[in-house]
Deep mutational scan, measured.
Amino acid sequence: PAHPYDRLKTTSTDPVSDIDVTRREAYLSSEEFKEKFGMTKEAFYKLPKWKQNKFKMAVQLF
Rank of each mutant, 00 (worst) to 15 (best):
V16Q: 06
K41D: 01
L8F: 04
L47G: 00
K54R: 13
K36C: 13
A43I: 11
N53V: 12
D14V: 02
E35C: 12
R23H: 10
D6E: 11
S12E: 05
K34I: 13
R23T: 09
S29R: 02
V59P: 00
S12K: 08
K54S: 14
R24C: 13
Q60N: 13
R24I: 10
H3A: 05
I19H: 04
V21A: 10
K34T: 13
E25Q: 02
E25I: 08
K54P: 01
V59C: 13
D14S: 05
S17N: 12
Q60V: 04
E25R: 09
E42D: 11
P48H: 00
S29G: 09
K9P: 08
L28R: 01
K34S: 14
K54H: 09
K9S: 10
K54I: 15
A58C: 15
E35W: 11
W50C: 09
F62A: 15
V59E: 08
K49H: 08
A2D: 13
K46D: 12
G38C: 15
A26Q: 14
P48D: 04
F37C: 05
M39Q: 01
P4W: 08
E31N: 07
R23M: 12
A2P: 14
R7P: 08
A2Y: 15
R23D: 06
M39V: 03
Y5E: 09
H3M: 07
P48S: 02
P48E: 02
W50K: 06
Y27S: 05
K54F: 14
L47T: 00
E35L: 10
L47V: 01
W50F: 05
R7T: 08
L47Q: 02
I19C: 11
P4T: 03
T40R: 01
Y45E: 11
Y5K: 08
T22A: 10
T22C: 14
A2F: 15
R23S: 09
E42N: 15
D6G: 00
P4S: 09
T11C: 15
P1K: 14
Q52T: 01
D20C: 11
D14Y: 12
L61V: 03
K41M: 10
W50E: 09
I19L: 03
F37R: 00
R23E: 04
E42S: 11
K9M: 13
A58E: 14
F37D: 00
S12T: 08
P4H: 09
K54T: 06
F37Y: 03
E42G: 06
T13K: 09
L28F: 08
G38H: 11
S29P: 03
A26N: 07
K56W: 12
P15K: 04
A2W: 15
T22F: 02
K54G: 08
L61S: 06
P4F: 07
V59D: 05
K54Y: 12
E31H: 12
S17T: 14
P48K: 01
K34G: 12
A43F: 09
T11I: 07
G38M: 08
M57Y: 09
S30Q: 12
V16D: 03
V59S: 07
K56M: 09
P15W: 03
Y5G: 06
P4M: 07
G38D: 04
E25F: 06
A2T: 15
E32R: 01
T10C: 14
A2H: 15
D14G: 04
Y27M: 05
Q60H: 12
L28S: 02
T11D: 12
K49C: 14
S12P: 05
F55A: 13
K34Q: 15
F55P: 00
S30L: 10
F55K: 13
T22Y: 07
E31Y: 11
E35R: 08
A26M: 13
N53G: 03
R24F: 10
W50D: 09
N53S: 08
D6K: 00
K51E: 14
S17R: 14
V16R: 05
D14R: 03
K34Y: 15
V16N: 02
Y45M: 03
N53T: 12
E25C: 12
F44Q: 00
Q52C: 01
I19A: 05
K36E: 02
N53I: 14
Q60L: 15
F62Q: 15
D6P: 08
R23A: 04
V16T: 05
P15V: 05
V59F: 10
H3Q: 06
T10F: 06
S12V: 03
K36T: 14
L47E: 01
L61I: 06
F55L: 15
E31V: 10
S29H: 07
V21Y: 10
A2R: 14
E32G: 03
A43M: 13
N53Q: 10
E25H: 03
D18T: 07
L28Q: 02
K41V: 09
F33R: 00
F44P: 00
K34D: 08
K56A: 02
E31Q: 13
E35G: 07
T40L: 06
F62P: 14
F44V: 00
S30P: 14
K41S: 05
A43P: 01
S12A: 12
Q60C: 15
D20R: 04
R24E: 04
A58T: 09
K56H: 02
D18Q: 07
S30W: 11
F55N: 03
Q60Y: 15
E42M: 10
Y5R: 04
K46I: 11
T11M: 04
P48M: 00
V59T: 07
V16S: 04
F33C: 04
E35A: 10
